[in-house]
Simulated scan of single mutants.
Amino acid sequence: MSELHPAQKPDVIRAEYLISAVRQEQYPPGDEPEIAFIGRSNVGKSSLINSVCRHRGLALTSATPGKTQTINFFRVFFKLSHNNSEARRQIFFVDLPGYGYAKTGRSTRRQWAKFIEEYFLQSSRLKRIYQLIDIRHPPMESDILFHQWLRRQGLPVKIVATKSDKITRSRMKEHMGVIARTLGIEPEQILIHSALSGAGRDELLDDIVQILLQ
């Protein structure tokens, strides 16, 4: 794997909304790698995307859980240093509907599950899935079941613990340990993030850029 030039950090220079889809034929054309964001409703997927891209209105956020009802594609342009020279790379960010929202009708949940599963199993561009979990609470049954399903499919999933500004730094290690033990992973495999403070943004960018350099 290629290494970043140590003198400069990668960053997003531009991001744009492309399309909302529920079927494969609606996905945008192109061969850019894809990174998908999934988690329980109201865990902060859209806020994380906006934070990473430094574009407050890019992915629409809402206080109402279950608001995202389609697969939303964004094209994100990165600037990074590679082998002592500056390079530009493009990538798709994919914002998926949240799971586990009890007030969503059963037929709607089945519809979401169908097109989300089809996306995960059919997208040839998918390089990383960030599963978001609220750091304040232990993973819920839907988090556990979804994580297990992703791993059984051999999909490249990584955990991002969101809303890290909502707990004290002294409790963060404890909460990350609970998430790790519940999901059967190591705490070091978990990224943290706060859309409010921006904490963890650089680490998340570094992880994304390693995908671009593969």
Rank of each mutant, 00 (worst) to 15 (best):
R23Q: 07
G100W: 00
L126C: 09
R75N: 07
Q131S: 12
E32D: 14
R110H: 13
S142M: 04
R125K: 13
K45P: 02
L132V: 10
E34K: 07
K127A: 11
T108F: 13
V178K: 05
D202E: 09
L132K: 09
R14W: 08
L126T: 00
L80T: 01
Q8C: 13
K173Q: 09
L150D: 11
H5G: 13
T182Y: 10
T182W: 13
V22T: 08
S47Q: 02
I71Y: 00
Q24D: 05
F77S: 14
I35D: 01
L4V: 15
Q24T: 14
E174L: 14
G154T: 02
K79V: 15
K114T: 15
E3Y: 15
I49Q: 10
N50Y: 00
N72D: 06
S47G: 07
D202Q: 11
Q153D: 05
K9N: 15
S107D: 15
L60I: 12
Q69F: 05
A59I: 01
S194C: 14
I91P: 01
Y27W: 08
R89Y: 04
Q153P: 11
R152K: 11
A87N: 09
P156S: 09
I71P: 03
I91D: 02
Q111F: 06
P33S: 12
D11E: 11
A63I: 06
D202T: 14
K103R: 03
Q8Y: 12
H55K: 12
K9E: 09
G57A: 08
R89T: 14
R169S: 12
S46Y: 02
K173I: 12
E117K: 01
I159E: 01
L150C: 06
R23L: 02
L121S: 12
D11F: 03
A15N: 13
R40G: 05
K114I: 14
N84M: 07
E188G: 02
A63P: 04
D143Y: 06
G105K: 11
D202Y: 03
F120S: 09
E34I: 06
R40H: 04
Y101Q: 08
K9L: 15
V52L: 06
T70E: 05
G200F: 05
R110A: 13
K127V: 13
R151N: 14
Q24L: 14
A7V: 05
N42A: 01
L191C: 13
Y27N: 03
Q111C: 12
V209S: 04
S2P: 15
D207P: 08
D95M: 07
Q148C: 07
H82I: 10
P10T: 08
K79P: 13
S20H: 09
F146I: 06
I192W: 04
L196E: 14
I116T: 03
P28Y: 01
G184F: 04
G154A: 09
K127N: 04
V43F: 01
V157A: 08
K158C: 12
H137Y: 08
F77Y: 13
T162R: 01
I159W: 00
R14D: 10
A161P: 02
T70G: 08
L191R: 00
H55F: 03
L204N: 13
R110W: 13
F115A: 10
E186K: 04
I190T: 05
Q189M: 09
T61V: 12
I49A: 10
D207H: 00
S194Q: 10
K173Y: 04
Y130F: 07
S81A: 15
L96E: 00
